[in-house]
């Protein structure tokens, strides 16, 4: 192509020269895998013939009747709800504290982003060690304050394993919320607060009537970003508990991974992941609709 031709394309009114590369990327890396996934959920891998066999709705029927799937879905929802709630509340609280212009706070704000550069699998390993009942620092501390019996291995106890995983999750991702909220707080206008002070409002009233509503868009974005991520939780449970003890920390992603790669049930694995995709999409859309901010 000559320079003149390139130039003509670049300044033409047609959107296609700009859209095509993106469409191509989407097609190869998103749309095709998605369609393949749908197709796969109607097939199953047969080890004897080393090929895929059409099974109709068998995978979907199996899913419906699969107690382990429903259990994993329950664990996933619990994990999602607890982590999201704590990360939002804690994140907002820390952001409000760090928003003050006090000496040393600039450094604290910088330190915050440090947990985010650690790969989640590594963070999971760290907490696996720290929560060890023999020599784990965290177990020791929890034992000191009387929250944990010294002899109890946290991650190997059904009632505590999910909490153990959640600690790692919350430790690593609360700073992410803090960063988003702090950016939001910093962009809030000062004038309404001045007016509210003159109107006699207390700090709590200002937070409830001004900060929260003005932050609603930011909070919505944080919930969406973090929520989608939380729903496909894999790293921490994989590294720390492998879903155990029993099925106490089995999440949908882990179950789909196991079906696909350990048991080579590609079709059923595809069905599981497709289901969680649909759930995330439905929830995200409902959320976007409900959380629509009008002001």
């Amino acid at each position: 192509m000559s320079i003149a031709q390139v130039k003509r394309i670049a300044i033409s009114d047609s959107p296609w020269p700009w859209l095509l590369p993106l469409i191509a990327l989407l097609a190869v890396f998103t749309i095709y895998p998605f369609i393949y996934n749908v197709w796969l959920s109607f097939h199953e891998f047969v080890p004897k013939s080393r090929g895929l066999k059409f099974v109709g709705f068998a995978n979907w029927v199996q899913l419906w009747n699969d107690g382990r799937f429903w259990g994993a879905l329950g664990v996933t929802f619990l994990y999602f709800a607890v982590a999201l709630t704590i990360e939002i509340i804690l994140g907002m609280a820390i952001a409000l504290l760090l928003d003050a212009e006090l000496p040393g706070f600039a450094m604290l704000r910088a330190v915050l982003s440090m947990t985010l550069v650690i790969p989640p699998a590594i963070a999971g390993m760290m907490f696996l060690l720290m929560e060890d009942s023999q020599f784990g620092a965290l177990s020791y501390l929890l034992g000191l304050v009387g929250l944990l019996d010294k002899a109890t291995p946290m991650l190997a106890t059904s009632s505590l394993a999910l909490i153990g995983v959640l600690i790692a999750e919350i430790w690593q991702w609360t700073p992410f919320m803090v960063l988003i909220f702090m950016a939001g707080l910093r962009s809030l206008p000062a004038e309404p607060y001045e007016a509210a002070m003159i109107d006699g409002a207390s700090s709590l009233q200002m937070f409830r009537r001004l900060t929260l509503p003005m932050m609603s868009r930011v909070i919505a974005v944080a919930v969406l970003l973090r929520g989608i991520d939380l729903f496909r939780v894999f790293d921490y449970v994989f590294v720390m508990t492998s879903g155990g003890p029993g099925t106490a920390t089995y999440t949908v992603s882990l179950y789909a991974w196991q079906q696909t790669f350990s048991f080579l049930k590609w079709g059923y694995g595809a069905t599981l992941s497709l289901t969680s995709l649909v759930i995330v999409m439905v929830m995200a859309n409902i959320f976007i609709r409900v959380a629509k901010v009008r002001w």
Binding site: P189, E191, P192, A195, A196, I198, S202, L210, P213, M214
Partner: peptide, 17 residues
């Protein structure tokens, strides 16, 4: 808040939400 004043701001300073 303890001065018992009311003010109209030059730039209004309304509560946007």
């Amino acid at each position: 808040r303890d001065r018992s004043i009311a003010m109209v701001f030059q730039n209004y300073a309304l509560y946007p939400t």
